[in-house]
Every structure is written in C-alpha cells, then in structure tokens.
C-alpha cells in the first residue's frame, strides 16, 4: 500500500502519464473532429503508422524536426483525403473504407521504410525533440511534469484548446457540428455539407498523424514495425468515452495515461507474482470497460455513418 502511495506522490508518475497521454490526445482530437462532422475514421490506426514513419523519415533524410512534424501532418492529410473521398463523395461504408485506409496506409508506410532501409540490423535513430525548458525543471512538481515534456506535448495541449475554441466559439465549429447532426439544415443555409465534412476529415486525419509522429520523434527516436500497437483503436474508444468533447477527451487521455503509467510501475513491483502480460492487457481491457460504461448514455452525432447526397433524404 505504501508503494502505491509512493507512486502517486512521485513527480515522475505524472510526467509519465502526460507523456503516454500525448499521442492519444492527438488521436482523440483527430477522431473527434471527424466524428463531429459525421464521419467515423477507422483509418486512424494506419494514419498513426504513416505519421510515425513519415515524420521520422523526413528528419532522418535531413529535415529539421518541425519540418518532420509538417511532413507527418501532410501524410495524414493525404490518407484522410482518401477516406473523405470514399465516404463523403462516394458514400461508401465508413467502416470498410476506414479499415481499407488503415491497411493501405500501414502497408504503404512499412513498404516505404523497408525500401529506403532494406536490411538494417538495428533501426537508425534521429535526434528527437528535447524537453521544452530544462531550466525550469527545478520548479517543484510543475517542473518535471510540464517543463520536462517536449514541444509536441505542449502542442497537443494547445490543440485541445484550439479544437475546443473552434468547435464551441466559432461559426465554423457550429457548422461542423451541425453537419454531423443535421446536414439538411446546413444545406438549407446554403453551406456545402460535403466541403465541410471533407475539411473536418482532412484536418482530423493530420492530427491523428501527429500522434504517430510523437512516437518516433519524441517518445522514441526510431521507427519500429508494430509500434503503434492499437493506440489508434484506443482513441476511437476514448472519443465515445469523452462524449465528443475536447475537454473530456483530454481528461480521458490523461486518465488513460495515468493508468498505463501505473501498470508499468506495478509490473516492476508485482512482476514476480503475476505474469507481466496481465499488465500489458490492462490498457485494452480498460478501453473496453470504459466503452461499455458510457455506451448506453453515449449521444452519437446523429448523422454519424450516414452519407449525404444533395436532394436525397
């Protein structure tokens, strides 16, 4: 019991929680934006892989870190645009198209990586993002928890505010939400339903790619096969848990990060008694439990999964 208390009292626990939460924050925000506009984007898992690969690859080829971030976002936007064309303009099944995008995006990323680096014994490394303000890390609690994080974590936190502000405080946000709830009403106001949805899906997909980029450019310094490991799917569960609100999405991601950080620490303590795999399963089980708990109350955007064509009801 004192061990548990010690974990909760340590700065490093909260720093780790936020670090683990960061890719999820990007991913949940991206998925939230797509779904608010009425489009489920199961391409997320593959877009994570593409973001992780292309951001890393750009830096490895000599670009600076922020150009790498941009490259990741653009790559995500390209695959998002593919999903958008298939689901919005062609009205195809969002489930199947999304899975198709995930398979396509991840195999494209793996193929590109393998083609550029045919046989390397250990994956080459880049110089990743460093702590934003190491000088301030002496400040109690806030120092290690916030200032030892990299710029990408700060970007994720800023994006939570930005997405919240756009969705809740701007006419554009009102239109995006309306397009996911009642596209006919948006159309009646003379706005283009399909253009709004397209924009939301492309923007959301580039956010997802940033989640991947964080993995290779901040959390680690190399690209591994299978490194995304279901993080995208976890984001899809977290969006429902967050009832499609940016603030709750941040909360959900951080709670998840805390849980994951806790299991890693408990694993080292209890590793002798319980097989380590029990702890590895925990994040996925937690996601399912969270989903089941909120499922009955979840108010899905009303037009989610519904393609919209002019003059068709």
């Amino acid at each position: 019991m004192t061990d548990l208390l010690q974990i909760f009292l340590s700065d490093s626990f909260y720093a780790a929680s936020l670090r683990i939460a960061t890719p999820l924050i990007f991913g949940v925000l991206g998925a939230l934006l797509c779904e608010r506009a009425g489009v489920l984007n199961l391409g997320i898992e593959g877009i994570f892989v593409v973001g992780a690969m292309s951001g890393w690859m750009a830096v490895w080829l000599g670009a600076d870190l922020w150009t790498g971030v941009l490259a990741a976002a653009l790559a995500g936007a390209v695959f998002g645009a593919l999903h958008a064309v298939l689901t919005i303009f062609m009205g195809l099944s969002q489930h199947v198209s999304g899975l198709g995008v995930t398979l396509f995006a991840s195999s494209a990323a793996y193929f590109t990586y393998r083609t550029a680096l045919p046989e390397v014994a250990s994956p080459p490394r880049i110089e990743p993002f460093r702590a934003v303000a190491p000088a301030l890390s002496e400040i109690p609690f806030l120092g290690p928890v916030l200032f030892s994080q990299t710029a990408l974590t700060w970007l994720a936190l800023a994006l939570v505010v930005l997405v919240w502000w756009v969705l809740d405080r701007t006419p554009l946000g009102v239109a995006i939400k309306a397009v996911g709830d009642n596209p006919d009403a948006v159309n009646a106001q003379g706005l283009s339903v399909r253009r709004l949805r397209f924009g939301a899906v492309v923007a959301g997909s580039s956010l997802m790619a940033l989640g991947g980029a964080f993995l290779t450019m901040s959390a680690f310094d190399a690209f591994f096969f299978g490194m995304v490991n279901g993080r995208g799917w976890i984001c899809i569960a977290l969006v429902i848990f967050a009832s499609w609100r940016p603030g709750k999405a941040l909360l959900g991601a951080i709670l998840f990060g805390m849980f994951d950080a806790l299991q890693v620490r408990l694993q080292t303590e209890a590793g002798a008694v319980v097989p380590g795999q029990i702890f590895l399963m925990a994040p996925y089980i937690l996601s399912i439990v969270a989903l089941v708990v909120v499922a009955r109350r979840a108010e899905y955007p009303r037009a989610l999964l519904r393609p919209w064509f002019k003059g068709q009801r």
């Binding site: 199961l42 429902i240 989903l291 089941v292 499922a295």
Partner: peptide, 14 residues
C-alpha cells in the same frame, strides 16, 4: 450495453 462491436472486437485482438 450498446457498446460498439467494432472497437471491442478490435481491441480483443490485442
């Protein structure tokens, strides 16, 4: 419970 089977069946794979 109305839990989306896409997400639950996917996560079960892991």
């Amino acid at each position: 419970f109305g839990a989306d089977e896409v997400v639950t069946s996917l996560l079960l794979n892991f």
